[in-house]
Write a protein that binds this DNA or RNA. Sequence first.
DNA 1: AAGTGGTCTAGACCACCGT
DNA 2: CGGTGGTCTAGACCACTTC
Lengths: 235, 235
Amino acid sequence: MAVKYKEIADCLERDIRDGKFDTAKKLPTEEELINNFKVSRNTIRKAINQLVNLGLIYQVQGSGMFLREKSITDYINLGSLRGLTKDLTSKIIETKILELHVVTAEEEIAKQLRCEVGANLYYIKRLRIVDKEPFSIEISYFKKDIVPYLNEDIASSSIYRYLIEDLKLNIGFADKVINCEKIGEANAELLLIKPLDPALIIENTVCLTNGTIFELSKSVFHYEKAKILNRINFK
Amino acid sequence: MAVKYKEIADCLERDIRDGKFDTAKKLPTEEELINNFKVSRNTIRKAINQLVNLGLIYQVQGSGMFLREKSITDYINLGSLRGLTKDLTSKIIETKILELHVVTAEEEIAKQLRCEVGANLYYIKRLRIVDKEPFSIEISYFKKDIVPYLNEDIASSSIYRYLIEDLKLNIGFADKVINCEKIGEANAELLLIKPLDPALIIENTVCLTNGTIFELSKSVFHYEKAKILNRINFK
DNA sequence: AAGTGGTCTAGACCACCGT
DNA sequence: CGGTGGTCTAGACCACTTC
């Protein structure tokens, strides 16, 4: 993290989350930030841009930079990598591994992962439990050539923390498709709801910064417990 | 649109959508774009940034700029303003106005819109019909001091086109909350499904660039027909 | 009119990819 | 190593808000 604008962005993000600007609901001017951090204006503006994209602040030409309403916690944040652990901060998150093994890609999965049929994949099925109640079922496939090792320990805590910090993967972008279905019997049983009750589904295709797809996942959420939040900017 | 980087972004977006780079799956280098458009590097990079944020391309340091997989059309795009008409391009979209009148804000709505109880609002309830079949029910509130006039004609086509092009509103950002419920009787009837069938819900709070909330909406989607797509970048 | 963000330029150097 | 993006600087001028 030797990059100035990221350090500044992180610093300001911490300040915002710590409530440092809550009384004014306003950030220092660009001018002031330039002086505080001793960098050029472009660097400050790049840092600020991150905060805008995160949905933390908005800028008004001629007026200043303001805090956005605090988003309700305990919503799933579509735009973050961070997973349940970071989204539902006030809750107890537990994970039960239902399955974890190496499999070979069959046709449909290979097509979606853009890899060869027969390629080695990690297959993981987990039940996520929030405040002692079943919350979601997550099925993931990881390409084994990119994620060479996984175990129950890693899969029980944050897989993404492991991918980023230990494997040093550079995660770049993702496609998420959200819809809603009648839940099947097996999943209903796991989530303690009735078959044909609603289920909120997120299907996720994740790529490295170089464009390689490395993960495919499908999450089935308890319809009464899961809410997704997305903050959008139009520029 | 006298702004260079936006013009360049729009131009490149058009080229991408027209398939101009489909054979190479690669865009010209920054250097080449600088020469083509005769602008500085920063301006080119700002334009490119828009395309990255739209999920159209990705950049790889040391290598180049590449097209992302084409997203399937006929998904609702969470990150766009443009609404069904622009998302479901291959479909016939019709809109039936169920209600449209001026109302006064009662407490709950006033709180969400951060306005006074009793303020004048437009209340609109619409049934959206896609390829001759009911697709969603949309209930919206607009602050009348910001949207002083609306009629059936406008509400039948694209309200946002009217807000942006005719009223010249500067729309800035929005919070979207997505979840899933058992549908009620009245809505089930409109969507031609059964009560207690699933429904995909999007609640939307939209602000001008200056931070003023001006719209609140709730859309109830047919669970078999609606899919939401969101493209995300991690930077 | 003063304050503050938005756009744009020109140029330097660094980091990563592929040959 | 050459090609290509990523970061950073310094300075100019414009556009909008606020008083």
